[in-house]
């Protein structure tokens, strides 16, 4: 069973992502912000990270950069799931090493499609 780390400061968003992924058979662990996400990811290797951008303590882009510095996360897919949709932010995401960018509110079927694609 693949394990996915869902990072978002909104409990509702975490719950939505977790429900959709668990209903499709994935195991999900959650984190409330980038700093906690980094802790969780270093404590336990995960197969995919889905993170929000705007969060307290550590934002999504910083989390992506921090994870990419770790040997175990050089090639693990990381998706940004955020309300931010500007091209400049997406460029920053790409430069930081993100695998993809999804804009909220997400369509569950589309999220599952993307997850399956990047985990393949």
């Amino acid at each position: 069973m693949k394990t996915i780390l869902a990072v978002d400061d909104s409990a509702t968003m975490r719950e939505m992502v977790t429900f959709v992924l668990e209903s499709a058979g994935y195991r999900v662990i959650e984190a409330e912000d980038g700093a906690q996400g980094l802790d969780r990811a270093t404590a336990q290797n995960v197969d995919l990270v889905i993170t929000d951008q705007n969060m307290p303590n550590m934002d999504g882009l910083t989390l992506v950069r921090s994870l990419r510095e770790l040997r175990d996360y050089k090639s693990v897919p990381i998706l940004l799931l955020t309300t931010e949709s500007s091209d400049s932010m997406k460029s920053q995401g790409r430069a930081a090493g993100a695998t993809g960018w999804l804009v909220k509110p997400f369509d569950p079927a589309t999220l599952l499609e993307v997850v399956q694609k990047v985990l393949r």
């Binding site: 949709s85 790409r94 993100a98």
Partner: peptide, 15 residues
């Protein structure tokens, strides 16, 4: 301007 950019909601970009 999230409301003005509503057409982006749900969009996906894979790099």
């Amino acid at each position: 301007a999230p409301l003005g950019e509503k057409h982006h909601a749900g969009s996906v970009d894979l790099f």
